[in-house]
Design a protein around this nucleic acid. Structure first.
Lengths: 149, 149
DNA sequence: ATTAAAATTGAATAATATTCAACTATTTAT
DNA sequence: ATAAATAGTTGAATATTATTCAATTTTAAT
């Protein structure tokens, strides 16, 4: 057994997929070449960032999902972007936004379980010197990434 | 001009993409047939829900992104799932979770601009009889759907 | 109306996924 | 421990599908 699954999953999270032109052509009843032309234009414009897979995260051992609201400390408050880019590199982070309201950042985190979540927060508070965090844990995901579950 | 773009974008939001087996094979240096076998198994297990595109949402006129925390009223409080499934059908809703904490739902909404957002909230409060909502607007998206922007 | 640029399309080709059958490794039952 | 059954890997052949290309049509600008 080569244990290829985790490597495939890793690649699929961000990309390594491609449009199904023939299927789209059939669906909207237009020639495949027209679809192809339009898609390539969207790609060149930068409107399409990536083609990727959406998972049933429970089944790939990332069943615990938490939204984390973050208060930064002074040293990052005026320039949240560089810290965000670093946090974004973490493969457990699905999304990160700089936001309005009482908290500066909103992070969507996917972990195996609550223990892994707890370890992540401890590590992140220390590394990024967050002054406060609020966690909102998902009890049930009804839709993610525009895909109904 | 056939205005094919919006139809393609609609299809891509939820699917109509497929794995690039040859590219994965090259990347992880395993035979394409092995990759194929493993992917098909993941699909059969239901671990993979869909293959889809990720957009630069500003470029497809969905540049306004808001996280909405919702308090339900009594009639839905004990059974939030059915109302969630209905909200999930809305193509502007990227994600919806039933959550812990002071608010029962967390909705991630993508609209063209703040006006469309405001219309959506008015409509939703009325239709679903939300007792209260809190909006957290994204000022800058650094990562979405596991894709760095 | 004339020109230039952008978009559409069918036919030909290139690239890729998929099937199949043989083989290997792993697990289960006796 | 051994046999049998199941699950996983793989190369070669085939079937699909994306891509290229050149011709045509549509749209936009002057």
């Amino acid at each position: 057994m080569k244990n290829i699954e985790p490597r495939i999953i890793g690649l699929f999270k961000q990309g390594y997929c491609t449009p199904q032109i023939a299927r789209i052509a059939k669906k909207i009843k237009e020639p495949a070449t027209t679809i192809h032309y339009n898609i390539k234009r969207l790609e060149k414009e930068g409107a399409i960032k990536s083609y990727k897979a959406v998972f049933d995260y429970k089944k790939i051992n990332e069943g615990h999902c938490t939204y984390i609201l973050v208060n930064l400390t002074e040293e990052n408050y005026g320039n949240p972007e560089s810290i965000c880019k670093d946090i974004a590199k973490d493969p457990k982070v699905e999304s990160i936004d700089i936001c309005t309201g009482d908290y500066e950042l909103l992070i969507k985190l996917r972990t195996k379980d609550i223990d892994e979540y707890y370890e992540w927060t401890k590590h992140a508070i220390k590394k990024y010197n967050f002054s406060k965090i609020i966690s909102i844990t998902s009890l049930k995901q009804v839709k993610t990434e525009f895909v109904e579950l």
